[in-house]
Design a protein around this nucleic acid. Structure first.
Lengths: 154, 154
DNA sequence: CGATATTGATCAGTATGCTGACTATCAGTA
DNA sequence: TACTGATAGTCAGCATACTGATCAATATCG
């Protein structure tokens, strides 16, 4: 039988598992309570003020049904706001709050530290190579998941 | 701001997301209904008959609380059995059923196909290198998650 | 214009994964 | 042997992720 360690799918699960654990530990150590998904969403809202949920989902490759709950929690924590759009009454415009901005700023060192820790077994060059290969594999498989990455059309 | 594509954590999530989608699509295409986690558990039970749940968890790096539900579903599908251990009345001994063996055998081509598809953007050499780097990063971070990989002591 | 298709958001249901708590049992030791 | 600590399994609760459905609103096209 093929060993688990020869299965890219298994390795993907393990690496992701570790990445999440490291992220949560670093962020909690900094005194915050924010998940990787919530962080990515919040940072993307800050970079694209007023975007709607589908666009946000496309920018970070979330399923649109997952976004609903994530935004719920960001709003509940006072980090983001969800407003009805005036241009399209189906859509909600997302904004980051001052509190959200403060949180993002203070949390950034912990997030960057987490990225280093999850690569701590690799040299700088190996880390770069790992990211390059992941990017390449992801690009080729982008449309195979229900939540592909979608660039915004200007 | 750092781009998502420079964050190993984000890339890990994306690659895992695609890996799961590909696995499910291939397995469903072969006429089966088994998740990646259920497959790994079943294959490990087959390779280690009579093992208990904690040992199984250690072999594939699951959290022990996650195993309970996974086994529930394998048993419910008639692919595995959970019996009380005679040596330790706290423990359950896990066995694969004939139906489970049949399923594993028939599903293997789909699983292997899935592993190829999720690397389809990479050359053979690049795929090997990606797996090598993932293994190395995982080994260094093994103890950072609640569910580390644990080898069996003979 | 009006029928049809598409889109944004949500919801119900299911399956990982985790934290923390709890029970039952086992192991080691004073 | 009685006490203490560790261990196997489960459970409640929460947060991703997905499938598939539904509703409201918008776009498109005959």
């Amino acid at each position: 039988m093929k060993d688990n360690n020869d299965m890219p799918g298994h390795l993907a699960r393990r690496f992701q598992q570790i990445a999440v654990a490291v992220f949560l530990a670093e962020v909690e150590g900094a005194g915050f309570d924010l998940t990787p998904v919530q962080y990515a969403a919040l940072a993307t809202i800050k970079a694209n003020p007023g975007l709607d949920q589908v666009t946000l989902a496309g920018l970070i490759a979330y399923d649109r049904t997952t976004i609903t709950g994530v935004i719920d929690r960001l709003v509940q924590k006072g980090l983001a706001e969800r407003r009805a759009s005036s241009r399209d009454r189906r859509a909600r415009e997302l904004e980051i709050t001052d509190e959200g901005r403060r949180t993002l700023r203070k949390i950034t060192p912990a997030v960057e530290s987490a990225q280093r820790i999850m690569l701590r077994g690799l040299s700088a060059k190996e880390g770069e190579e790992l990211m390059r290969l992941l990017r390449k594999a992801i690009a080729a498989g982008n449309d195979l998941s229900r939540a592909p990455l979608r660039d915004v059309q200007a």
